[in-house]
């Protein structure tokens, strides 16, 4: 009987999986790269357009390489103000949208953390009723309740305010359910250990539950920030003044039916600026985001 020999160290394509061929890998890469090009090209083209003058954009074909008006266009949009939206600068729009997106994301997280905490860790009458009430709201889309909500906002005088933009969107059954599911996985012994260690409900929440939810909160923050950033219908209804618009709404207002009437170079700049903050949030929080999706620190 031959002794089983150690295999020689794999050379060359040692990262191949069993049954994979070299050609297969090249083909797969080619397809993936093609996919990326198809997805990324419109964004690149928007960027290119944002660096040319209005005249260049309106006279086809549009060049494939960036032009020389990067600084002029961006400075004009950011600080000068755009004519079609009453001279409001994109900087104001960015600020508005940031406030709204942060308000919605942070508000949703705080509210859903607290309500999930109450539902999971406390015994009170009608506990399950409350849980189902929250759960049922999942089944009603925002559009269904948009008229009554709008009426309430008008009555409270909250049109054209940050409060009016944020508060109606702040309750989140999805986030509450997510935290509830996470809290349910926390072993009962841990809760009891904290009780024996003299931690009251508030301390337990602050010292133990919150640190354990860190990754979940981060993942949720990324999702909710983008949700808030891209809100369309509600900001459209609840803002009339141009300087209270969010960037998405302003972007739509900038585009006129008549091509010549639209400052396309500024529209392109605004589009680019509108996608930068969400990208930043995703990139900066990517590590946390992925961890929140794949593991829990237990």
């Amino acid at each position: 009987m031959a002794e089983p020999k150690a295999l020689p160290p794999a050379s060359g394509h040692d990262k191949l999986m069993i049954g994979q061929s070299v050609t297969g890998i090249y083909v797969a890469h080619a397809i993936l790269i093609l996919g990326i090009v198809i997805v990324a090209f419109p964004i690149y083209y928007t960027f290119v357009a944002s660096t040319h003058s209005l005249q260049t954009i309106l006279r086809p074909p549009l060049p494939l390489l960036p032009g020389d008006r990067f600084f002029e266009n961006y400075a004009e949009a950011l600080f000068g103000g755009v004519g079609r939206i009453g001279g409001v600068s994109v900087a104001t729009l960015l600020f508005n949208t940031t406030v709204v997106a942060l308000g919605i994301a942070i508000g949703k997280i705080i509210i859903s953390l607290l309500s999930a905490y109450a539902i999971v860790f406390f015994r009170f009458p009608l506990r399950m009723t409350f849980f189902w009430l929250i759960f049922i709201t999942l089944m009603l889309p925002v559009e269904v309740r948009i008229l009554p909500t709008y009426k309430v906002m008008v009555d409270l005088g909250l049109i054209d305010t940050y409060t009016g933009l944020i508060v109606p969107l702040i309750a989140s059954a999805t986030a509450t359910l997510l935290f509830r599911q996470f809290f349910l996985t926390i072993p009962g012994e841990l809760v009891e250990a904290a009780r024996v260690d003299g931690a009251g409900p508030w301390r337990f929440f602050w010292d133990i539950l919150l640190p354990l939810s860190r990754t979940n909160i981060a993942a949720l923050f990324v999702i909710l920030f983008i949700y808030g950033w891209t809100q369309y219908l509600w900001p459209l209804l609840v803002t009339n003044r141009n300087d209270m618009n969010t960037i998405v709404i302003a972007l739509r207002k900038m585009i006129s039916f008549a091509d010549a009437d639209t400052e396309w170079h500024l529209v392109m700049v605004t589009s680019m600026l509108a996608i930068v903050p969400p990208i930043l949030v995703v990139v900066l929080m990517q590590r946390w985001f992925v961890r929140g999706l794949v593991d829990t620190e237990k």
Binding site: E189, E192, A193, V196, G198, I208
Partner: peptide, 19 residues
């Protein structure tokens, strides 16, 4: 309550605070 009873408990799964 457990806090005021001045007891300490060792749990089956240890229940250490993971973070």
């Amino acid at each position: 309550g457990p806090t005021e009873r001045d007891i300490a408990m060792v749990f089956q799964n240890y229940a250490l605070y993971p973070h």
